[in-house]
Design a protein around this nucleic acid. Structure first.
Lengths: 125, 125
DNA sequence: ATGTGTACCATTACCACACATGGTACATAG
DNA sequence: CTATGTACCATGTGTGGTAATGGTACACAT
């Protein structure tokens, strides 16, 4: 699986793992339908906690790059888009920067925007 | 000025002061054009730091509730709207909750939204 | 000269959050 | 029976931001 994790990097471990997995899939080392190592297996190989690997798998699945078939294991998504069309991270940045730009134009302070944001996140949770 | 500040409250001191000032103005205890105590004076009376009072005054002025005439003191804004029409705080909440709602509908996690938000705030500053 | 609003510099304390870890448990396909 | 993904419980650590403090300085109206 040619995956390396740098414990010294400021980049979160789960994020590193996501990048590595994306790279493996997009370079064709693993093709749609191919089985992937189990969470516990990969955690053991990379010397990571299983929860960390599970988090990476969970996000990769939501981005349509892998497919968790429950008890039957995890596989590369049958329609894994090499150019991930639904880039949720980019969507988040886009949507939020528009909102922030509008608010600043209305005279809102950065502090107020931060405070309002945390309030909104408290309510909706 | 009948203003009380609760040092034990989780509510920030400057926020408490803003609420109290709004109450005083909207109840008509201070009418448009009336002079207000100076920053240092009020800070001394309430036993607060002058920077804290200055912060409250600064935000109140931006909301058109008071009017700072520089060296000549601070006064209740001539057109202090009892129902503050340009409620920036409300605008912030409105705009942000819409954005958050859209993002959640797209499958974004609360964590991702928080991360994206802080990234946006870093860039725009 | 005095007091005004304002603008910098800085530090301290606190709190929320992300990150990562560990343990346990469950239903189920093989 | 074994291993799978998943879901809870919990803990510790580090980081970043807010809040509040203090000091100093400036231009200026009275």
């Amino acid at each position: 699986m040619e995956i390396t994790i740098d414990l010294e990097s400021p980049e979160p471990l789960y994020a590193q793992l996501i990048s590595e997995m994306k790279s493996v899939i997009q370079r064709g080392l693993k093709k749609p339908g191919d089985p992937l190592p189990s969470i516990r297996q990969l955690a053991n190989d990379l010397d990571l906690n299983s929860k960390t690997v599970a988090k990476a798998y969970r996000l990769l699945e939501r981005d349509q790059l892998i497919q968790a078939r429950g008890v039957r294991g995890t596989y590369v998504h049958p329609e894994a888009s090499v150019d991930n069309s639904l880039d949720i991270s980019g969507l988040v940045t886009e949507e939020l920067s528009q909102a922030v730009r509008r608010l600043k134009a209305s005279g809102a302070t950065e502090s107020e925007i931060r405070i309002g944001f945390s309030q909104v996140m408290k309510q909706t949770s």
